[in-house]
Nucleic acid binder design. Structure first.
Length: 695
DNA sequence: ATTAGGG
DNA sequence: CCCTAAT
C-alpha cells in the first residue's frame, strides 16, 4: 500500500459572503438575482440583518413562535403572503445532504441550509453562508455567531437586534470550489494532481469560492422603515420567520435558495426590511414545527425532525423592549448565553485539522479589503437616524440629538486564515468537505467582528463612530470588517466538572494563547486583550490538543509514512499541560468518551485496511490505518466496521449521520463477504498463503 | 492485550 | 461507545 503523505493546505482570506440587499426594488431585485445566479450557494446561509435595536433574548422577546400549520395556517406576520399549504407540507424536509449517487466529489450535495436573519441598521441583510453539514449540533452555535455579530456590532448600531430564526433551504450543490495548484485532475476523485504539490505549501493556492459577494447598489427604499430607528415606535415590527428555501435538490445551483430569498424579499412587505416574506415556490416544503422556541431547535432531534418553517412575530416584546430603551436610561440588554458552554452542542470535527489565525488577512491589503469588504456610505434621513447610545457616556448623550447616522454596507467579511491537513490520498470530495468543515468549524466556533479603519484595528468598543472617525465619509472607504474567532470567553476553571472531553473553544483559549503571536497573524495589533487565537475544528481527544499553525509547521517533520488518514497533530506538551486530563471527580464512573463520528475519510481508510487485512485483525487495522489517531482504538474500528456493515445493508433512508458514499459501502459489503467466507474456509482447511481481497 | 459480540 | 467473556 502506498504510503500516504499528508498535505497541508493553507488557505486564507476566503470570503464569507455578506449579502446585502434591499427588499423592495424590482430593479435591485433583478440585480440581486443576477448576482445570486452567478454565484454558487454553498450551504447554509446564515442570513443576518443587524438591526438598530437589541431585541435581546430571543426567549424573552420573541413570543411563542406561531406555528404555521397547514391546518391553522395562522400567522400574524401580516405582510407575509404565506401560503400555508406551501409552507406546511407534511413531508419532512430532506435532510440527507448527500445525493447518494451523484455527489462523490461533491461534499455536501444539495444543501439544507439554515438561514437566519437579524435585522440590521438600515435594512441591510447580511448573509453568511454556512454549510449545512455543520449539523444539528451547530445550530446553537449559529446563534452564538449572531450573538457575536451583535455584540460586536453594537458600536456601529448602538443596539443590535437579533431577531432571527433559522430556516432550511436547499442551496443547491455545494458551491465549494477548490482551485488547487497545477491540478488538472481536480475534477476526479483522486488527488493525483496534488501529490506533486506537497512541497509547495499551497498557501493561498486554495481558493475557496464557496461564497459570493452580493451587494445592492443603493440603499433601502423610502417606504422601508428602518428598524434601527428608535424614534419610530411603529416601525418596530420585526417579524421573525422561518423561511423556506426550495428544498428540491434537483434545482440547479443558480436556482438555489439565495435567489429565492432575494426574490421573495422583493415581494412587497410593508413590514419593512426586517421582514422576510415567505416563499411561495412550490419547492418550498415547510412544515410546522410546533410551538417550540427557536432554541429548542438546537437539538438534534428537532433539527432533523422538524426542519420546517416557523414564522412568528414578536411585536409586543419588541415594543416593550423598545420602550424600555427609550425611557430614561438606555438599557443595553446583553445576553448571557454566550457565556454558556458551547461544548455539548458543538459538533466535533476530527478529520480536518483546522486552525484559524486571527483575521489578519486584511492588514496587508487594504485596497483589496476595500474592494471586497469595504463599505459604502450613504446619507441617511436624519429623522430616522438617531443613534441611540447604549453607552450613556455624557458626551455621547449630549450629542445624540445631532447625530447623523452612518450607513455602512458590508459586502463581505474577511475570514481568518485556515489551515487544513489532508492526506494526499484523500479524494477531492473529501478535500472539499474538509474545507467546508474548516469553514464551518470556524464559523460555528463563534466569532467576533473586527473593525478596521484605514488598516488599523479599532478595538475600543466604547468609542463612538464619530470619535473613531467612522462617521467621516472620507474614511469609510477604508473601513473594513473581519471575522475573528471568538475566543474571548473566560475559560472555565480547570476544575470544571466538564471532563477534558468537552474541550471546546472555551477551553481552547488557554492553549491557544500560548501560540506565538508571530504564528498567528501579520497584525500584531491583533494580539491584544482579545486572544486572536487559532481555532480548531477538532476538539480532539485528551491527547490531541488544539491544532495551530505552529503545529501545522511541525507536521512537516512528521514522518510522511504515517498512514493515518486522520492525521492528528503531534501532541504538544504545553498544550497538554493546560488541558486537564481526566480529573476524575467521581472515579466511580469514568467519563464516557466523547463521541467522535467517523468521517468519510476515516471510513475510507478503514475500508481500505480491512480489505487488505480482513475482519479479524483489528489491531493490525489500527496500526495500519489509524496509528496516529490515538482516539481510535481497535475496538472502535471493529465497532465501526460493524456499523458500516449494518449501514451498508439498510436502505439509504434509514441511514443517519454523515452519509457514507455508496461506493464505500459497497466495498464494505464485498470485503465483509470476502472475509467472512475466508474465515469459514479457514475452518475447513488452513490456507497456504494469506488471502487478500483483491482491490 | 486482543478479539468477538451483545448492549 | 461501553462492557464482558474468552482467548
Amino acid at each position: 500500500m502506498m504510503l500516504q503523505k499528508r498535505l497541508d493546505y493553507g488557505f486564507s482570506g476566503c470570503q464569507v459572503p455578506a449579502m446585502l440587499y434591499f427588499p423592495k426594488s424590482a430593479k435591485r431585485k433583478r440585480s440581486a438575482r443576477r448576482k445570486v445566479e452567478n454565484k454558487q450557494l454553498c450551504a447554509i446561509d446564515l442570513l443576518a440583518t443587524v438591526a438598530g435595536e437589541l431585541l435581546s433574548e430571543r426567549e424573552n422577546c420573541a413570543p411563542s413562535p406561531q406555528c404555521i400549520d397547514g391546518a391553522s395556517g395562522t400567522t400574524n406576520t401580516s405582510k407575509a403572503s404565506v401560503k400555508p399549504d406551501h409552507l406546511c407540507q407534511k413531508e419532512p424536509l430532506k435532510t440527507e445532504p448527500f445525493d447518494q449517487h451523484s455527489c462523490n466529489d461533491t461534499v455536501l450535495g444539495p444543501e439544507v441550509a439554515t438561514k437566519r436573519q437579524i435585522s440590521c441598521g438600515s435594512t441591510e441583510h447580511l448573509h453568511i453562508l454556512r454549510p449545512k453539514d455543520s449539523g444539528p449540533a451547530s445550530l446553537l452555535d449559529k446563534y452564538d455567531i449572531l450573538d457575536a455579530i451583535a455584540r460586536e456590532s453594537k458600536t456601529l448600531n448602538n443596539r443590535v437586534d437579533i431577531s432571527y430564526s433559522a430556516a432550511y433551504a436547499v442551496a443547491g450543490r455545494c458551491g465549494t470550489e477548490t482551485n488547487l495548484p497545477a491540478s488538472p485532475e481536480v475534477e476526479g476523485d483522486g488527488l493525483t494532481g496534488f501529490q506533486e504539490s506537497e512541497n509547495q505549501m499551497p498557501g493561498n493556492g486554495l481558493d475557496i469560492n464557496a461564497v459570493g459577494i452580493y451587494g445592492m447598489e443603493d440603499s433601502m427604499d423610502l417606504d422601508t422603515k428602518p428598524p434601527a430607528l428608535v424614534s419610530s415606535d411603529s416601525s418596530t415590527e420585526v417579524p421573525v420567520c422561518w423561511n423556506y428555501l426550495p428544498s428540491n435538490s434537483s434545482l440547479p445551483k443558480q436556482e438555489s435558495g439565495m435567489e429565492h430569498v432575494v426574490d421573495r424579499d422583493d415581494d412587497d412587505n410593508s413590514s419593512g426590511c426586517t421582514h422576510l416574506s415567505t416563499i411561495t415556490n412550490k419547492a418550498c416544503r415547510p412544515r410546522c414545527i410546533g410551538n417550540h422556541r427557536v432554541r429548542k431547535l438546537s437539538t438534534l432531534k428537532y433539527w432533523r425532525a422538524a426542519p420546517n418553517i416557523l414564522k412568528y412575530s414578536h411585536i409586543s416584546d419588541y415594543d416593550t423592549e423598545k420602550k424600555r430603551s427609550l425611557h430614561g436610561k438606555k438599557i443595553y440588554y446583553t445576553r448571557q448565553r454566550t457565556q454558556r458552554s458551547y461544548c455539548k452542542r458543538r459538533k466535533l470535527f476530527e478529520r480536518c485539522l483546522v486552525s484559524a489565525s486571527n483575521g489578519g488577512m486584511y492588514s496587508g491589503d487594504i485596497p483589496n479589503l476595500c474592494e471586497m469588504g469595504g463599505i459604502g456610505t450613504e446619507a441617511h434621513d436624519p429623522r430616522t437616524a438617531v443613534l441611540d447610545t447604549y453607552d450613556a457616556s455624557p458626551s455621547q448623550a449630549e450629542q445624540s440629538s445631532s447625530y447623523n447616522s452612518v450607513k455602512l454596507r458590508i459586502k463581505s467579511f474577511m475570514v481568518p486564515e485556515l489551515f487544513i491537513e489532508i492526506p494526499e490520498t484523500a479524494t477531492v470530495g473529501s478535500l472539499k468537505q474538509t474545507v467546508m468543515e474548516a469553514v464551518t468549524a470556524f464559523l460555528q466556533g463563534g466569532m467576533s467582528i473586527g473593525v478596521l479603519l484605514q488598516g488599523k484595528k479599532v478595538r475600543d468598543d466604547n468609542k463612538t463612530l464619530r470619535q473613531t472617525g467612522i462617521s467621516c465619509s472620507d474614511k469609510l472607504d477604508n473601513l473594513g470588517f473581519t471575522l475573528e474567532p471568538s475566543l474571548t470567553q473566560t475559560p472555565p476553571p480547570l476544575t470544571s466538572l466538564r471532563g477534558p472531553h468537552f474541550l471546546c473553544l472555551d477551553d481552547a483559549v488557554e492553549p491557544l494563547a500560548r501560540i506565538p503571536p508571530g504564528a498567528l497573524s501579520i497584525d500584531q495589533e491583533a494580539t491584544d486583550s482579545t486572544p486572536q487565537a487559532v481555532l480548531t475544528s477538532s476538539p480532539v481527544s485528551d491527547h490531541e490538543p488544539i491544532h495551530s499553525p505552529t503545529d501545522a509547521s511541525s507536521l512537516d517533520q512528521t514522518p510522511a509514512d504515517k498512514l493515518a488518514l486522520v492525521a492528528l497533530p503531534p501532541v504538544s506538551i504545553e498544550a497538554l499541560a493546560v488541558v486537564p486530563l481526566r480529573k476524575p471527580r467521581h472515579p466511580e464512573h469514568v467519563q464516557r468518551r466523547i463521541r467522535r463520528p467517523f468521517s468519510v475519510a476515516e471510513v475510507e481508510a478503514l475500508v481500505q485496511a480491512v480489505e487488505k487485512l480482513g475482519t479479524g485483525r483489528w489491531r493490525d487495522v489500527k496500526l495500519r490505518a489509524f496509528d496516529s489517531a490515538k482516539h481510535r482504538t481497535y475496538v472502535d474500528l471493529k465497532d465501526k466496521w460493524k456499523t458500516l456493515v449494518h449501514t451498508a445493508r439498510i436502505s439509504p433512508q434509514q441511514r443517519r449521520g454523515e452519509p457514507v458514499p455508496q461506493e464505500l459501502l459497497d466495498r464494505v459489503l464485498s470485503a465483509q463477504a470476502f472475509w467472512s467466507q475466508q474465515q469459514s474456509k479457514l475452518h475447513a482447511k488452513p490456507p497456504a498463503a494469506e488471502p487478500c481481497l483483491l482491490l
